[in-house]
Design a protein around this nucleic acid. Structure first.
Lengths: 209, 209
DNA sequence: CAAATTTTTGACCGGTTGGACAAACGTTAG
DNA sequence: CTAACGTTTGTCCAACCGGTCAAAAATTTG
């Protein structure tokens, strides 16, 4: 048992938040190994020993960050529900995921970094909680297919493709901006992406008629 | 001018290849900062000073690796050609990219790592060579749309979505395997992915009829 | 063969980094 | 005020890491 929530003073709560915010910034930009405690401390406006008073080890910061991330990261998929029109549900899911890529790019990159390195710290979660959730939702989608509400295809790979296309705009942001150039790479790129993805997932590329 | 190819002995050529192979393995798994020269040297079966005899700095290895990578990485897009049936061309492009994710996952991860960190070493290339190439191919695709051969949509985001969906199977391999589980996560996953992506990009999810 | 050149190695160095620690400082309660 | 507790800092250390260097070993060349 991890047991009863650790008693924390007001200062501790505030400083811990500050550190986590700073660490998210640094970790997501440079990766775990590429980040130093000093950098995080400076970003949080405190000295290294002071930071280590709130988090005993560098790993502890990363772990805490990761746990929080996973909560919010899977929320959109959890909301995918059997009630309501299937195509609308899927469209909403795609939109929500794209909004997360837009509003929480650092979280997306932190996650991507972890997976890229082989997910050493969260593999159990992937094989357990995540797999269960995806299997569950895949069953829902399969139901829609059987009912003729959406085309028959592989629900798991469908989910992968939604993850891939949406998170791409956070994880590969530099590349997206570079390719789109100064004019089209501005704020409008997420709306363009939303329009494109909606069309792709609904109709594909075959010409109408 | 970088000038005439540096004269190299047989041993130098062989050892440099060995080092690059080992470095690809290590860098792609742990990132640049997360990798040590010692690890690369060990993977290449030599001592650290010996390795440094062939590559004076750690960065030199990474740079060489990166240059080679970019050549092969963009080859499939270069092949996308105006002659031939548009839908077939796009299907081939998707297939080739997926094959690269399957056959060269380390290269894909190395590239992903670089982009994730903000592409510090290849940003100029992204804004120059890559952008030009993509713009050029986007124009080709636009031509197909005008000719009514494929549905009208955003060619740039179309290319992004192909990159994202295919590279996902290399970069997020751990996650894909974890979610698919022992049975479906085997070698067949790339064929499943190929089938799914073909359907997605051609027809989307709307039910037929 | 021997000389010249290339390759390999062990020892070493300076800078960085994660983390420990005790002392100082601040705050609050009695 | 003072004791207790929470917070902050300067100093320090051991491990690690990128890279140097000179000398030994191996290889090539004449």
């Amino acid at each position: 048992m991890e047991g009863s929530a650790p008693r924390r003073t007001r200062i501790q709560q505030e400083k811990r938040e500050l550190i986590l915010e700073a660490a998210l910034e640094v970790f997501s930009a440079k990766g775990f190994r590429g980040s130093t405690i000093d950098q995080i401390a400076e970003a949080a406006g405190m000295s290294k020993p002071n930071l280590l008073y709130y988090f005993r080890r560098k790993e502890d910061i990363h772990e805490t960050l990761m746990q929080r991330l996973l909560e919010t990261w899977l929320a959109p998929l959890r909301e995918l529900d059997d009630i309501g029109d299937p195509l609308t549900e899927l469209r909403s899911y795609i939109r929500r995921k794209l909004e997360m890529a837009r509003d929480f790019p650092r979280e997306s990159r932190l996650f991507a970094n972890e997976i890229l390195q082989g997910a050493p710290r969260i593999k159990p979660m992937l094989e357990g909680e995540l797999k269960s959730l995806v299997d569950e939702k895949a069953a829902v989608i399969k139901g829609w297919m059987r009912a003729g509400k959406i085309a028959r295809t592989d629900p798991w790979h469908l989910i992968f493709s939604i993850w891939a296309t949406t998170q791409h705009y956070a994880d590969f942001d530099v590349q997206v901006r570079a390719v789109l150039g100064a004019d089209r790479g501005g704020d409008g790129r997420f709306e363009d992406a939303a329009r494109f993805l909606e069309q792709l997932f609904l109709d594909g590329l075959k010409p109408k008629g």
